[in-house]
């Protein structure tokens, strides 16, 4: 499985949980802490992100940046 990761800007997250319900891996969750605005922000709680971009697409705050491992390069290495 391709691995990815998300970086969530906790300062502007408003904890609307739309990314949590859209994550197919159930890898996101609300943090126990609050941010400066008083919202419980979202963070990556499971290390199973595939970089599918679903959470970033529905994020109303545009707070999510998605990274993914490069696909073709990895496959060619495995074949050798």
């Amino acid at each position: 499985m391709i691995k990815g990761t998300v970086k969530i800007d906790a300062k502007i997250c408003k904890g609307c949980e739309l990314c949590i319900i859209s994550c197919p891996q159930d890898g996101l969750g609300l943090a126990a802490q609050f941010n400066d605005k008083g919202y419980r922000y979202v963070e990556l709680i499971e290390d199973n992100c595939t970089g599918c971009v679903n959470c970033a697409l529905v994020c109303p705050e545009a707070a999510i940046t998605v990274f993914r491992q490069p696909k073709p390069a990895k496959k060619s290495v495995e074949k050798k």
């Binding site: 990815g4 990761t5 940046t65 990274f67 491992q69």
Partner: peptide
């Protein structure tokens, strides 16, 4: 916004 410019060995996709 403290957006990270890169993560180790990964491409920015969004």
């Amino acid at each position: 916004h403290d957006f990270p410019s890169e993560a180790e060995g990964m491409d920015l996709v969004y």
